[in-house]
Design a protein around this nucleic acid. Sequence first.
DNA 1: TAGATTGTTAATCGATTAACAATC
DNA 2: TAGATTGTTAATCGATTAACAATC
Lengths: 233, 233
Amino acid sequence: MESIDKIHGTFEKKQSEQKNGQVSAAVIKRLPRYHRYLGDLLREGILRISSASLSRLMNVTASQIRQDLNCFGGFGQQGYGYNVKYLYGKISELLGVNEGYRAVIVGAGNLGSALAATHMFERRGIARVAMFDTNPDIIGTKIYGIPVYSVDELGSFCERESISIGVLSVPKEAAYDVARVMVDAGVKGLWNFANMELKLDNPDVIVENIHLGDSLMKLCFKIKTKSEEADND
Amino acid sequence: MESIDKIHGTFEKKQSEQKNGQVSAAVIKRLPRYHRYLGDLLREGILRISSASLSRLMNVTASQIRQDLNCFGGFGQQGYGYNVKYLYGKISELLGVNEGYRAVIVGAGNLGSALAATHMFERRGIARVAMFDTNPDIIGTKIYGIPVYSVDELGSFCERESISIGVLSVPKEAAYDVARVMVDAGVKGLWNFANMELKLDNPDVIVENIHLGDSLMKLCFKIKTKSEEADND
DNA sequence: TAGATTGTTAATCGATTAACAATC
DNA sequence: TAGATTGTTAATCGATTAACAATC
């Protein structure tokens, strides 16, 4: 196996930090997908890959891959391609994998429990340190090993435990109250499943709104459109 | 309240069916969001809205709203704006709400159960007629009122019950087998939570892949980027 | 009628793709 | 060295925004 150091040692300056300023939303959206595919390749034991072969695998153009990666620095090598392990590491870094972020899940209903059950967090080096709910029957218990506390303690807990990520799996009606408490407690990002768009006045807090229903509707739209096409044949 | 008929009766020709050919993916992605906001307005009892006020509400440009809607026909009226109820209805139609699609959920684990518990389907007029699993302990039971059958019966069931939508909340490893069975049984769309991109050779079957992990990573990326910005101040 | 606001065309902007010189 | 493939610039394409005439 080639030495990663040998290949990448000479032009380290350019790489680590983002090139000039803003990266477009389009590129950011694609980064996790690159990460996924590279993870698969790594697990398959593939050592190197060219933008051309990766493009075939991912159904995008090789140009786009090279452009995207170059937003962050030269991760490849002319005549060689990309070292899978190295590139995977670089993208992991960009995405904040293993930054040691700490998360809480607010709302221990069906969705909250499902999120507690996944390996989604650990896999990215994110610790789920607690869950919060209002139901006295489950407060004090553990769900998939995660302790459930009263939502009354949410603010003080987040502050004390330096929580960066708050997951909102609460009903729509509770979302703003819960969000406010967490923002005041210094939480940096909210992952919002509450089925509404959380608009905060604090521009430093990042919000990712999940709308599963939108995806379901897109599916229905496409099914419907496809059927109508078929009818016109 | 104004009569919808009075306002819209005169130029019905243009509306109902899609204008010339393909609608861009960008527009399709935005339709469910329009639907959501209009639903909220409707519930609040708002009768009419202009593209300008809707644009303020939704944080997009009024131009974009008018362009998007005009892909499908003239839903508004000069000097008046849009009738909320009428527009909501039209977008519902476009999205296939209340088309009577029938769905099954394959995989009755945490995620499958969480999906069984939501009102996401009914709300869009989609019937969840059954769940399927391999676990003998839950086969024959009901989860939130939905009967659970053995995955062995999946194919024949989908065929017999004319299922249009298959929800995949199974482990990655099982996804292709399950997908193949459903596609062969005439299912028209797959909503795939299996954490991998389902690539089918049948171009008539629609696949929506859900990657919650990608969203979580985007959140981390943004938190990280924001922190780094802050450090450079 | 005058005012408001759409539908639609034209202008702008950004993202994707193509091309190729640099270079491993 | 010759071949391969990147990094990057330039060309193309598509999506967003602006502008305004049509019209309710």
